[in-house]
Nucleic acid binder design. Sequence first.
DNA 1: GCAAGGATATCG
DNA 2: GATATCCTTGCA
Length: 189
Amino acid sequence: MGRIVEVEAYLGPEDRASHARFGETARNRVMFGPAGRAYVYLVYGMYDCLNVVTGPDGVAAALLIRALSPLDGTDSMRVDRVLRATTRRRSLTPDQAAAAARRIERLPVARLASGPGIAAAAFGLDTGWTGVDLCDPSSPLRLERAPAAEPVPIVVTTARIGVDYAGEPWSTEPWRFVELGHASVSGPA
DNA sequence: GCAAGGATATCG
DNA sequence: GATATCCTTGCA
């Protein structure tokens, strides 16, 4: 379990940075369905990224979960991180794999899910989780309302990360939302 | 600074 | 069918 501290918003087909920019395809089909479902895709051949479908039925919008502050199950997160780091790399020598495992074992808790690829890895997610209803209280993967935080977190916006290819204005719109100063946030605050 | 993965959308 | 590209990460 973790608290979401960094997300990015992706709009419909007009958003040139969104997977919906080519219209409905086999990969992004769930984005065009009802809100509240998971959309997990593979990027750069080795990292899965978790999104929450947000638009109403027929409108392909989604929220990319970029970072979580781990709250519980951190041992399990380390196990899944190591598993992913050592199985998704074909050209790793045994020495390199052992070094990667040691590095993950030593990571501070705040860094276990600090980035879209490693957040999904920490939760053991892959593309097979696409379509799961995140609003169903009985779902193994679900969203829950956080208790009121004290002090109240300050949320700031920045441009989205890794979307320069989309060009203006999509690459500069302030559609990344981060909890200011949180140790689990990836990239610039 | 850059290579490592494989799925994907697009082009011949 | 072939290929450039990708909502990333951790190394040199």
